[in-house]
């Protein structure tokens, strides 16, 4: 029997947005930690560590999210870890986020003027203290707008994990479409839900960026 796209179907689609948001948060948390490490390695004084981080960034940015997903899905299961799709999806999205956030944050760390390093070194601060008290507080301020902007990419790319059966927004749309055969209506609703999540974040990123530039000019 073909169902109509009614209130319950609409609610199913809208409520599945919670898994889209959950995946985004997981990827942001894990990917953020990993990305932070990558960013620090990328500006390390040891060349091999810099190469390692650069290699990771090049790999993540040079490969489709879909491939990161399949590689972690099959790779982790071969390693003997029988992970539920949601966890595998979260891990692969974290890898994806780490590559991009690492590169964004590297730029932020390097955009702190080098005199700040010199001055803090002259004050006999250790490398860790230089990061903790001088460089990172300034880098974080610069990092906020592009990081918020990246979250939009992350939300959108969670749609790709629908292929391994995680019922997030895109997958929910697919399921409802299979039951109702009203693809235009269903996927426009799905797109609208994504838009309602992403647009405010985009606006926030733009607002933060403008506010920072005003602060700098003054």
């Amino acid at each position: 029997m073909i169902r109509e796209f009614g209130t319950s179907e609409l609610w199913f689609v809208v409520s599945s947005a919670r898994w889209t948001l959950a995946l985004t948060l997981i990827a942001l948390a894990l990917g953020g930690v990993l990305g932070f490490v990558i960013a620090l390695l990328r500006v390390s004084r040891l060349a091999p560590l810099r190469w390692l981080a650069a290699g990771w960034i090049g790999l993540v940015q040079g490969v489709p999210v879909l491939m990161l997903l399949f590689l972690s899905y099959y790779g982790l299961s071969l390693a003997g870890l029988d992970l539920p799709p949601l966890v595998a999806a979260g891990i692969s999205l974290s890898f994806y986020a780490s590559g991009f956030l690492g590169e964004i944050w590297r730029g932020c760390i390097q955009s702190v003027p080098w005199q700040q390093w010199e001055a803090s070194a002259a004050l006999a601060l250790s490398r860790a203290q230089q990061y903790r008290y001088v460089v990172l507080p300034q880098a974080v301020r610069i990092a906020v707008p592009p990081t918020v902007g990246f979250i939009v990419q992350l939300v959108k790319n969670t749609s790709i994990v629908s292929i391994i059966g995680v019922v997030e927004l895109a997958r929910a749309g697919h399921l409802v479409n299979n039951a109702t055969f009203q693809p235009m209506r269903v996927f426009c609703v799905v797109a609208l839900v994504y838009f309602c999540i992403c647009w405010p974040i985009s606006l926030a990123a733009r607002w933060l960026e403008r506010r920072m530039h005003v602060g700098r000019a003054g």
């Binding site: 959108k156 693809p183 426009c188």
Partner: peptide, 13 residues
Amino acid sequence: VVRNTPFLVQLFI
């Protein structure tokens, strides 16, 4: 609209 919706959903539409 395009920049705030996933490519995959655009493809489905």
